[in-house]
Design a protein around this nucleic acid. Structure first.
Lengths: 218, 218
DNA sequence: AATTGTGAACCTCTTCACAGCT
DNA sequence: AGCTGTGAAGAGGTTCACAATT
């Protein structure tokens, strides 16, 4: 029965990530036919405390029933609404190299509502082809395709030395949110949100943990 | 001249990630022939404050010269030592699918000291082949190859439903650190460190930012 | 004059603990 | 009795601001 509260001013990235994980859990238990779930169980399945789960949810409304737990169906819908997963997001991908191609072929995104509608690259042998049904265009087409398909989200998977320049072109083309897979810190254009997907850094974090023994936080 | 302090008990993941980024910046400016760099400049290039940079470094020792900044060469070496980047890390990869193959072909890891020495899969048509020079084995070979090559780090890139079981087999085989690319929260075996590389969650974070407008933290 | 290293202040996120529903 | 929702307490991480040093 998600009583919606006033929009909370600003939520931390970690809190949003946890909501995504709860959503997955709810999707899974829903398929198993479970009708209610307690903060305790949601917590255990996600490696956090039950207080954390309740706090995260209470930021956005009152979803549970005391003594009973949370109704799976309506909580799932509520989180979908909060995260904006109750719609389709057209996405473009710039950089159809090794990693970019794998992402184009990764069907999971589409299933979750993120539909890659176009790829972009500079390599002449890639332009004009299509990968897993996604057409590959030359970089010059970026602005008009972003406008035409009303795309707000872009995946950046070019080599590190090109990433900053491409990031700027994406911003100019009207992209508002970038998932950066290049191993470099970007100077973000005004009004654009950037998230990092950086495997090298995570490997180095593991290297640190093995070298020094132990890390705070999951 | 990195005076090493007593080993700090426990460092946050974010702090380690920032050190990785500083390391990259140092690598870049070193190639440009810069001999010293200030906390201010290191900060700007990484989107943090100069106090943050100084605090991060001071956890591990005294590396700078007041009035001058940090000597690039020796600071880079010091961070390499802290993160354990002053050696080669043999790595195994389990799950030679779409994403796994891209990672096998991604040369960047090797350049950073993470050398994928073997891939594992259940598909008979993959077993016995090799991808970009990395031989692919059947899952049963996991324990003996981990032992033989003295591998501590593993990349997990199997489909979500198989991830928990594979994670446990990796733990039993002697793997101590896992980079999980499957979109699911793992119940970590005792003594094993896990990091998540979860593009779907980052996309959902972007979806949230676009829907609700704004996110805390970079 | 410039810039580090760091205690103290500040802020944010997490956990506690318990009142209040069901 | 069971479990949520939440104010208050507690931890942890970040920034301030300035003495110390080159």
């Amino acid at each position: 029965m998600g009583t919606s509260k006033e929009v909370p001013t600003r939520i931390s990235g970690s809190s949003v990530r946890r909501l995504s994980r709860y959503y997955r859990t709810l999707d899974r238990v829903q398929k198993q036919g479970m009708s209610h779930i307690s903060s305790q169980e949601l917590a255990e399945r996600n490696g956090v405390t039950s207080a954390q789960v309740r706090k995260d949810l209470s930021t956005f409304g009152t979803f549970g029933k005391r003594g009973l737990g949370y109704p799976v169906d309506s909580l799932k819908d509520a989180i979908a609404g909060i995260l904006g997963l109750d719609r389709q997001w057209p996405v473009i991908l710039v950089g159809v190299g090794n990693i970019g191609q794998a992402l184009l072929r990764y069907g999971q995104f589409r299933r979750q509502g993120f539909h890659i509608v176009a790829g972009f690259d500079v390599a002449p042998d890639k332009i004009g082809t299509s990968i897993d049904g996604v057409p590959i265009y030359r970089m010059e087409r970026l602005p008009d395709l972003v406008a035409e398909k009303e795309v707000e989200i872009g995946i950046l998977s070019v080599p590190a030395p090109d990433a900053q320049a491409v990031c700027e072109r994406m911003g100019e083309a009207g992209i508002l949110a970038i998932l950066n897979c290049a191993p470099i810190t970007l100077e973000t254009p005004e009004g654009v949100t950037v998230r990092y997907e950086d495997m090298s850094i995570e490997l180095e974090t593991l290297s640190y943990a093995l070298t020094r023994g132990g890390l705070q936080e999951g």
